[in-house]
Design a binder for these strands. Sequence first.
DNA 1: TAAATATTTAAACACGTGTTCATAAAATTA
DNA 2: TAATTTTATGAACACGTGTTTAAATATTTA
Lengths: 347, 347
Amino acid sequence: MYSKEIAKLAGVSRSTVSRVINNYSNVAPETKEKVERVIKEYGYVPHASAQALAGKVSKIIGIFIANIRSGDEEYRVFRNVYISPFEAAIIDQADKLGYNTLVLIINDNEDFKKIRKLFNSKILSGGIFLGANNNSKEIFGLIESGYKLAVIDQEEIKKKNVKNHIIVNSDNYTGAYKATKHLIDYGHKAIAHICGDMNKYSGIKRLEGYRKAMKEARLKIKREYIAYGDFTEDSGFKCANQILKDKNKNKITAIFSSNDTMALGAMKAIKRMDLRIPEDISIVGYDDIRIASYVSPALTTVRSPILEMASVVTDNLINFIEKGTSSSRYYIIPVELIIRESTMKLT
Amino acid sequence: MYSKEIAKLAGVSRSTVSRVINNYSNVAPETKEKVERVIKEYGYVPHASAQALAGKVSKIIGIFIANIRSGDEEYRVFRNVYISPFEAAIIDQADKLGYNTLVLIINDNEDFKKIRKLFNSKILSGGIFLGANNNSKEIFGLIESGYKLAVIDQEEIKKKNVKNHIIVNSDNYTGAYKATKHLIDYGHKAIAHICGDMNKYSGIKRLEGYRKAMKEARLKIKREYIAYGDFTEDSGFKCANQILKDKNKNKITAIFSSNDTMALGAMKAIKRMDLRIPEDISIVGYDDIRIASYVSPALTTVRSPILEMASVVTDNLINFIEKGTSSSRYYIIPVELIIRESTMKLT
DNA sequence: TAAATATTTAAACACGTGTTCATAAAATTA
DNA sequence: TAATTTTATGAACACGTGTTTAAATATTTA
């Protein structure tokens, strides 16, 4: 069923059908009504490719999800539990605005070529990066090529030739500050930090937030307080072991983990050392993934407003696509500390 | 950058470029090599819409994910924790076969029209349903229309006019049988079942598996043993309360929940009644979602081989798309019982 | 060497839709 | 009523690629 046949059935020309579909003003009301009736009756839908070829832009945006590199195969495929609801929220919001969503999992730099292909072949008219590295040259390249892109969790881009993009971050810095401050307020002094992947902006900013709170309280950050993980559970386990191996010497009483997944690994390690949470070690995570409220003890953590971030990034991207007016917009969304059972006052 | 320009740069005609791209045999090797060099140098990619219009089929498949109806907004958007890794595994497998994936969340019947649109406009060349209701008229309609579809968790379709589709199920019947049998082997006799959504094939078959095991052991299924949930945590909570409210009379010592999410809700309810798991009540879930191994006590459950199911369904669908040869294939994938801490022998 | 055949290429058309342009019809003004 | 403006409509072209057909070139055979 094509527009030619609709035209015949409605007794008008194909151009008139096209004008009805595209809401032109100069169509007689009764003609319009007649054509619309036929369209509805036969369930006609324009051929998207033909439309695209004739100059209409596609109503599809991409979601580009960075895969976790290290760790086991299972985790690789099953994907980041923080990212997954983010994806769902974006799909939902895009749908509300009449857009479909194509999901791509980015494993290596080869996959950036796929993105380029999808844009060049006019399948996508925009895209959102999730979990990307900070300052990614590949993303800069795509933005420079003029593709309409938004990035979650990315430093403000100051390069002169990289403009026209959207960046939405949660306030990682303040979140990490609040988390650390919470431990300080509870009387802890020897507070360790399990860093996330330092290639991600969130990893960097959360470390900064931790430093800020410690500095503000005039607490010295000893070398042994810091361990470098990569946001995976395994790395959390290893980092906790490393941090606590000289516990008698270090007197560490609290850990701020850069995300919940690592915090879970750390909790396993802590329990295995026969230390109690929170009596011996208080621990704070970040992200408020679903498991956080189920583990025992329930994890104190920082919650990012995923729904809000997804709305902001999607609305802005689609506005950018349709109006063409984004001049490097940069958003920071506030976060919330959720106090549960994994932290307690030092007596 | 279009094929016309490539042709000019390579000093050949546009048709020759097309023949090179589409691997025709009658192109001189040196010509072919020359054209390929230019294509690579300029990173040329054919305009997908133009290709589609000229008769090539799109390399995009849809993943249609049914949303949970009841329950809170958060859960709605954040999506089913069982479905989410499934989606990831399908995307991964499709990518390996050179296909991209468009994800659609199905909230109501209106959304089936969207699917029709996507097929009619030639954006999609196939699709996979996740979490769909059993015997869905809407899906039957789409299959009848000739769209190439696969469905996870669906009864074998016997209607004469509904053919050419692929169905992949995990062995829900045997899984539920194993779960119940496990409890019986542990000496339990008064075993309750929290049913899942009876609109889903998995909900139906798991109840059947439970019945089979009970019958085989000559255990009577009292009316109070059965409670009807809908796969959400809330419903699990309510069902457990209902089942256990006359505990002194019923002597129920074990519960088989139709999925893990409801089992979590049930565990909350059980704890709130000051009963111990597994000392007072043993509980078995289904799906082996990630949280299952983190809760305390860790949940005994049934694991479906998600990766395998995703491979089977994706491989078959793409084969169907490319070769056009599927005559109602029906697959059942075996499952595995994972025994953890939430079940114990009755002494 | 001429003829027959095999190989390679270029031109032309098709795919379905949007849009421009010219024209016909209707409405308004003089 | 005639002239002008406004409105409505259909014909023709453009979008980029695949494919068919006819022609040109190279190769082989007699």
